[in-house]
Amino acid sequence: MVAPELLKPAPLTNATAVEMIKVNKWYGDFHVLRDVDLEVARGEKIVICGPSGSGKSTLIRCINRLEEHQEGTIIVDGVELTSDTGRIDEIRRDVGMVFQHFNLFPHLTILENCTLALTWVRHLPKRDADEVAMHYLTRVRIPEQANKYPGQLSGGQQQRVAIARSLCMSPKIMLFDEPTSALDPEMVKEVLETMEQLADDGMTMLVVTHEMGFARQVADRVIFMDRGEIVEMGPPETFFVAPRHERTKLFLGQILR
């Protein structure tokens, strides 16, 4: 048996999980993030929506430094993100991420996908790593696929593996970048259920998605972004019922129809 703390998320040391202060980012001349201020509390679930190109993916990708911000401050559980690679690796170990296109490693089995970082980053012996991986694969309800390759699984199953792979590292925070956008409609539900279960367990989550049902049910706050700005932010009860901003109304009108 592995130590029980390997089988659950690591606790955040600070009450504020993520703090972004006046964050700005440009791609060449294109201003992707404009003065973004955001504070995410421990255990909070945030859903970010907005039209394509509004900077919502870039925003969460800045949190684990897959994208570099040029101005402002980002603090993840008390650690400020700078170009110090040691610190970036430290933050990436504690922040899990799930991608639109799963990004599973096609040359490794499902089990090996999950144990890779446990072995090489956490330096767990193979037996313990396998046990942790099987624990999370059971949790996302696909332990029987452990020895298959990603290409042999359906999209929904692959995305659940991707979630399990992130959870194996006992992350303090989980980032989801449009986790259901590349899925066939009948598979969206199984992935959303997995995420809801994760939310019920108290994980701090930032989710970029257009699944407004999920936002209503799970989110503590919903953020609407447009042209690199946070336009509107509020609890789902007020956000969906009484959006204040014109752009929000227009966007919600388009996707809720």
Binding site: N64, L66, F99, L116, A117, V121, M169
Partner: peptide
């Protein structure tokens, strides 16, 4: 996406290159 998936797990550059 393969680089990103691996880096997001906290693997270093040499590990990403060698293992993924």
């Amino acid at each position: 996406g393969q680089y990103e998936g691996a880096m997001a797990l906290g693997l270093s550059w040499s590990q990403v290159t060698r293992l993924v």
